[in-house]
């Protein structure tokens, strides 16, 4: 992933700060990675290199740790975050096909971010509304029964939204009530 302007300095100062507040022992590696990710939103390659230097752990091991745990992400969150559920219920009704549709539309693989950082795609395991399977979470809003056709619809809607601030504004409005209402409505329709 190409770093943006000024991002390099931001990463270096962040890692410096986290390292100076830790014991730099091998046991401290996970908390260090967690703190850096909390600040930067992800673990850039540069940050992992610097952490490896600072803690005297081989960089390959830092990379191994970051790829082992699901909580660490190696790509920056996109302006629009799409999470496809592949829990049991969603998987059974074709969640993997939904995921593939997104991968094709965004031209990235699961876990990646588009080079313009507009979209990021993730897989999650159960959002908690299996009756709506297959479920997709788009910028904190839950979408149920997402067929490949609906994927096209979602992508069109997202293309309409201009940038991050817009997306957050519109989703914030419905964030508190939206999700629940949506699922209730879905339930109601079916009954």
């Amino acid at each position: 992933m190409q770093l943006m302007e000024g991002e390099k300095e931001q990463i270096l100062s962040c890692v410096d700060e986290v390292l100076s507040n830790s014991t730099k022992e091998k046991e401290d590696l996970i908390p260090i990675l967690q703190k850096v990710q909390a600040k930067l939103g992800y673990l850039p390659v540069l940050a992992m290199e610097k952490i490896a230097e600072g803690t005297d752990v081989p960089a390959a091991d830092v990379y191994g740790l970051a790829t082992f745990y699901n909580q660490f992400r190696l790509n920056p969150p996109g302006d629009h975050e799409v999470k496809v559920c592949l829990g049991t219920a969603c998987y059974m009704v074709g969640g993997d096909i939904t995921l593939e549709s997104f991968e094709r539309r965004m031209e990235i693989k699961e876990g990646e971010t588009t080079s313009d950082r507009r979209y990021s795609l993730e897989r999650v395991a159960c959002v908690g509304c299996c009756t709506m399977a297959p479920v997709v979470v788009v910028d904190d809003e839950v979408e149920g029964k997402v067929t490949p056709t609906r994927v096209d619809g979602i992508m069109l809607e997202l293309e309409g939204k201009s940038d991050k601030s817009d997306a957050k504004d519109s989703s914030n409005g419905s964030k508190n009530t939206g999700n629940k209402d949506d699922s209730d409505k879905e339930e109601g329709e079916r009954i």
């Binding site: 992992m48 290199e49 081989p58 390959a60 830092v62 990379y63 191994g64």
Partner: peptide
Amino acid sequence: DREEAKVGAIGFTQRGVNRAVTTFE
């Protein structure tokens, strides 16, 4: 790589069926 060569170029990465021995990145 670690104990004899003392280099640290390779290590275990990923998880489950994707587990592999690779270099950094």
